[in-house]
Design a protein around this nucleic acid. Sequence first.
RNA 1: GGGCGCGUAGCUCAGCGGGAGAGCACCACCUUGACACGGUGGGGGUCACAGGUUCAAUCCCUGUCGCGCCCA
Length: 887
Amino acid sequence: MKSIDMLEKTFSPQDIEARLYAGWEESGAFAADPTRAAAPFTIMIPPPNVTGSLHMGHALTFTLQDTLIRWQRMRGRDALWQPGTDHAGIATQMVVERLLAGEGTERRALGRETFLDRVWQWKAESGGTITRQLRRLGASLDWPRERFTMDDGLSRAVREVFVTLHRQGLIYRDRRLVNWDPKFQSAISDLEVESREIKGSLWHIRYPLADDPTRFLVVATTRPETRLGDTAVAVHPEDARYTDLIGRSVVLPLVGRAIPIVADSYSDPEKGTGAVKITPAHDFNDFEVGRRHDLPMPSVLDREGRVTLAEIATDSAFVHSLQGVDRFEARRRIVAELETLGLLERIEPHTHQVPHGDRSGVPIEPLLTVQWYCNAGELAKAAIASVEDGRTKFVPQQWENTFFAWMRDIQPWCISRQLWWGHRIPAWYGPDGEVFVAHDANEAEQAAEKHYGKQVALTRDEDVLDTWFSSALWPFSTLGWPQQTPELARYYPGDVLVTGFDIIFFWVARMMMMGLHFMGEVPFRHVYIHGLVRDERGQKMSKSKGNVMDPLELIDRFGADALRFAICALTGPGRDIKLGPSRVESYRSFVTKLWNAARFCEMNGIAPDPDFDPARATLPLTRRILAEASAAVAQANAALEAYRFDEYAAACYRFTWNTFCDWFLELAKPALQEAEVKRTAAHVLGLLLRLLHPVMPFVTEELWDHLGYGAPCSLIRAPWPATFEVPGADAARAELDWVVRLVGEVRTVRAEMNVPPSLRAPVLLKDAAPESIARGGRWLEAIGRLARASDFAPLAGEVPAGSAQAVLDEATIVLPLAGLIDLVAERARLEKERAKAQKEAEQVARKLDNADFVARAAPEVVEETRERLESARAEVARLEAALARIG
RNA sequence: GGGCGCGUAGCUCAGCGGGAGAGCACCACCUUGACACGGUGGGGGUCACAGGUUCAAUCCCUGUCGCGCCCA
């Protein structure tokens, strides 16, 4: 019965991954349980955009999170990995708008309600892509708890937060310059603006003095099209060239308006001509200058980036011809007109930073509008303090600097967006513009009635909130807040937030501000910041470069375990990871190695024995592998506790391949019939599967189930291995190390002397201490097999002529190979060895000759150095003797 | 311009005050009782450069150069 059920010769991930995942999910293995006595362990997923599909960045972050969650779950913690998706305002609205465009319509034609119905319909049909793909990766999220930032509960949390912050004066309306995205026709926050270097021009324009039209003030600008809205020219107060002009006026060319020359230190005498036009409604710096000098602030561009003359007066036919013209066309026409009029002194090529919308890619336009703002400066105080006093720690810690730098200079957060898809701002306006912020229309109407003394018709604010406003609430809104649920009490604050540095400001900082304000406690204890996934040459992945890797394709080719292991192995602290298919392929070899080791154990009839007690092991072989296994567990714990995924992976890799396969199984082969060896092998393999499960869940679960360690799909819940004491571990290690070194020395000599492996030759020990002889005697079979020895014995008489030799501690290994080896080559080999030992001896001797070293270095260091010198000298002596014997 | 990080074997990266490491790649040999997605052995590095601190520096400090990222 068992024989037809043996493990397949090769591991086929595609056959088992879906089955195992379904098995875990259906059995509730991912479920947190607030009623359990165990301590909770919480990770909040950074909610991927509902429009998203799994990319390598997701594969990285979710592999790390799943590894941590599975590890803590096995450790007995009540693990909650909270799943969900983000409504992603602009991204989702764009997706649906594109669909509509394909149907020959657009959102305004549909109207707001119909459009939103359409978005929800899209979400129902296509919004589950990313969550399906997360399952392919093996992510053990608690799916029944899945949330969406626009679901009813989270929307309620958003309204509650908005209303509360408004009442506290921390949310307010203000008319000021915002970053206006002309493509989306919406305000965006400072964070959504990225500056791009643009090769443009600096136009030097003559502004005639009002009281002396023969004199000009030359003004340099990169944006001639906004000059219709100039309301001053600024010069530096200490700029001697212009002192006499301060307080006088210039006539704004084309427009004909007289505007003052003001002194303001914003003007940089080194830049351009030192005289700068001031357009308060279209430039952030100019806005400040305008405020300082109480200047008018006419807007001359509209929400689509076209010229509007509504706020300026002019008789110029040319200027009137610009009405409704796009900003870049207006620039061309104005420059041409100035040139015609002889007012353009020169054009200087000029490279400068131009703000662009990060999603739209178009230059943003500072625009004077009324928007909703959040007083981030006030909320930031508690968040800064929580990092200063260590309630939240960043890993790697250097990211705290980045966090502090931004938080200490944080600007008001513009939270309103002129979009339709999102949380509509819970504010209503009376006929006179009075604002009523309330949880719902009913409450707003009551407030209005109280205010006006009668019922009035209210209109609701058209705008929605910045998507990040709702994600800022994620750590508590997903747990039921504002209701006081058992989940909220138990799983807040979370243990660790795992994410990339690119959203420290967008998301991490804002969660901390909101969490501290509304929950009175940090949302998470640790913030683990990982790098970016790049291609194997270190290039950022991008569609235009064509170097984008698809994690699903890698999973199809190599299996989820190989991809996950590659990610962990390459994730060092504070580094980007360079990943290519060849890396994943090479870690697939590791998966295969594990599979084959398990097959070998199965073929030898190893069987799990729950009563096995490592403390009762008697053999050096079993004691050593058990001690190594315990050490591997300790290493894995230390690595994972420090978020050193690379070290965790390396410890697993080393222990599995090097320690377990290369030495333990090889040495155990003939002994696998012995009960203790067999039981130990079974025990250690079981430990290994548990140790590897967090990073390689599929293959380990399959082996665990198949080999009978537990019921189907039970490894995910198996207890994480504990470290344990092994009696006589040191002696066992010493003995096995000696065997390993003996075999290694013999192999090296044979390989270098080109002795064919098929030829077995005696291994003799000269000058060996009795305990070495005894050790060898206990390992005759292994030495024979692994060192290709036909015999192993102490050397009684003289070293036979034509032998190869090698030094092992006090003894010399002698391989009588007369006629089979080239003595000239053997002499050269020994001389090289001697030179190496001699160099070591000289280096160490020089150190000990230094009186300062002996006097000042730590005594144990000096002692260790003396021992090193002694053994190096002994080795030189033995190699000398070996050389002398060759003659 | 300000800040952060990185320069260690061909590649990717650990290490970080006292003997230069791993994986992959490479070369040679090997189908030895799971595994050629394998086994065994081997070659390969003035630890970017220059100063300083120290008995001792790849490691700490300062500077220079090169690369990357963030902010203005």
